[in-house]
């Protein structure tokens, strides 16, 4: 739904011929159209401008301070490297994407239900909450080498790392969402003789979905980080391992090209989650607006 324009009183100018109502309204509409036309491209233009600005500063720093290529290549070199390495990056992206997607799927499948349990059982909440808090003050990255020892050079330690890093926002947001149901609605359910299962399926879970999706949006970006960290600790393929190998050979442009590839993957996955949210919560669209901005 779009308002035609913010309300603005149309002042009658003394001494001038009053324009007709139609003319005034036509002017309002055309002004509004113009504002709208300017608003879109301008915001895109600003994004491009800010990125170009950073690149220019980057380029200037490298040139002015004569920074060696293996410490910080200039943006043009990085871009050349990226374009030239697209086949390699695509090949290495496959295992990393697998780790991210499997880890994310497990995170959702396990920790949404855990959140539901925490929100519905005081006892369970009492047991699990302290663990959650402790887990968040523990640097999960520290476990990466241990995971390699335990599971070997397979995909397993990376997936576990993804889950360890990404689960927290999923649990917390699920709990918050489930608990957001108002007392009136709960009472209404009781007066309808609804079973706990029906209450959960028909009321609590749908009510929690916007909050759960907020958690998933954070979790998907954390998942990419988890996969890269998992590969740092030991891997025979993947973008994280490519960074380790490239920096070991002082091929810094390739390191940067790989980082760009990871950023693109992260952004695309984030947008996909946002799209899934938009598609599955039609009743929530007005509040969050269309994705893709």
């Amino acid at each position: 739904m779009t308002a035609v324009s913010e309300e603005r009183p149309i002042a009658a100018v003394p001494g001038k011929v009053r324009p007709s109502r139609e003319a005034v309204i036509a002017k309002l509409i055309s002004d509004d159209r113009r504002r709208r036309r300017l608003a879109g491209p301008r915001s895109v233009g600003m994004i491009v401008l800010s990125i170009v600005g950073v690149l220019v500063v980057w380029w200037l720093v490298v040139v002015v301070f004569q920074i060696p290529r293996f410490v910080l290549p200039n943006p043009v070199e990085v871009l050349q490297q990226f374009v030239g390495s697209i086949p390699l990056l695509a090949e290495e992206a496959v295992p990393t994407l697998q780790e991210v997607l499997i880890g994310f799927a497990i995170t959702v499948a396990v920790f949404v239900p855990v959140g539901v349990l925490i929100a519905s059982s005081r006892v369970f909440e009492g047991f699990v909450n302290p663990l959650l808090v402790i887990s968040q003050s523990t640097p999960m990255i520290a476990f990466a080498p241990l995971l390699i020892t335990a599971f070997g050079y397979s995909i397993v330690p990376k997936v576990v790392m993804v889950v360890l890093i990404a689960f927290f926002p999923v649990v917390v947001n699920t709990v918050v969402g489930i608990k957001s149901v108002s007392q009136d609605v709960v009472d209404l359910g009781r007066s309808m003789g609804a079973s706990n299962a029906k209450m959960l399926l028909k009321v609590r879970l749908p009510a929690a979905l916007p909050s759960i999706f907020a958690g998933l949006r954070v979790a998907i970006t954390l998942s990419v980080i988890g996969a890269v960290v998992g590969e740092y600790a030991g891997a025979d393929a993947g973008l994280g391992r490519l960074i380790v190998v490239a920096s070991g050979r002082l091929n810094t442009p390739l390191v940067f090209a790989t980082v760009i590839a990871l950023a693109i993957i992260g952004l695309v996955l984030y947008k996909l989650v946002e799209l899934a949210e938009w598609a599955s919560l039609p009743w929530h669209r007005d509040k969050r607006g269309r994705p893709g901005r």
Binding site: S182, D184, V185, A207, H284
Partner: peptide, 8 residues
């Protein structure tokens, strides 16, 4: 007092 309708 509040209608307690389900938004979805």
């Amino acid at each position: 007092q509040r209608d307690a309708l389900l938004d979805w």
